[in-house]
Design a protein around this nucleic acid. Structure first.
Lengths: 145, 145
DNA sequence: CGTGCAAAGTTGGATTTCACAACCCACTCG
DNA sequence: CGAGTGGGTTGTGAAATCCAACTTTGCACG
């Protein structure tokens, strides 16, 4: 792992969930899939890579591996708090993909409890105001090593 | 490129910005860096990979390559609208990394115009309500091919 | 008993990507 | 002239990925 470049939590986050397939695995987990075969089918990842990714996500504390059957031993993967906290990232990725990459209508659609079709907006957690570039300024930026 | 797996804008988005270094390049661009050497230094990516990433991001319409000097020819990379629309994703990634990965205090801190230290919250764009799992339900989910 | 099926992986080998250093070219500066 | 800078390309070797096949532990049928 390169220790070079800017000291940055984006880089640190990507070291955990930035490898290929990791976020698609999380997508399936947060859609409710918990089993190896199902995750393999729904993501398209090959089984060896999937096994490796699940291991690193468990080690990183994003998923928990739990035995749900003794004989024969069978396992499921459930999200930890850190795993559930990735949902905003996935929602924003989906929105961006819908807008700028996917041709045609969005493949997946959510509805919010307010009745409207759900689209994410990222706002200031304190005041609820928009998080545009003009509204924000960097107080401190991680240095480059 | 696997055409397998679920039809999903998250997968489509990751096909564009999910390769290694792509999001760190975007981070630097959105921090205001525009030049090849500076992006190389600040991300830690090797120059050959960086050249490849910049090419694919330009082809995907996320960045624009612009000549800013004729003799000798010099280029800068500026974000398109699609590139600027990635900011919420980066802010949420930073927040998640601060909380669950980075040891110690956040390396980078923003302040919102309301005066508070900035932390992102993802809400329903229509009503402003929280985007928790209980508040949302999937109307349609992309099929698995 | 033998065959088939399922879940959750592991193994071996080919292919692709990545990393690192070195090099190139067009200029500018001293 | 020689050194430095910006923006890359090339060559080589290491690492990661893909794919298909195999393994293990058990259940269910006939």
């Amino acid at each position: 792992m390169a220790a070079r470049g800017r000291v940055c939590s984006i880089a640190n986050a990507l070291a955990v969930i930035g490898e290929r397939w990791s976020l698609l695995v999380l997508r399936e987990i947060l859609l409710g899939e918990r089993r190896f075969d199902q995750i393999a089918r729904n993501t398209g990842a090959s089984r060896d890579i999937l096994a490796a990714r699940l291991r690193t996500l468990v080690e990183a504390g994003v998923l928990e591996k739990r035995r749900y059957e003794e004989h024969p031993p069978r396992y499921e993967y459930v999200p930890t708090e850190a795993g559930r906290a990735l949902q905003p990232i996935l929602l924003n990725l989906m929105e961006w993909g819908d807008r700028y990459v996917t041709d045609g209508p969005p493949p997946t659609v959510w509805r919010h409890s307010c009745g409207a079709e759900f689209h994410p907006a990222t706002v200031c957690a304190h005041c609820g105001g928009a998080a545009t570039e003009e509204e924000m300024r960097a107080v401190r930026i991680g240095p480059v090593l």
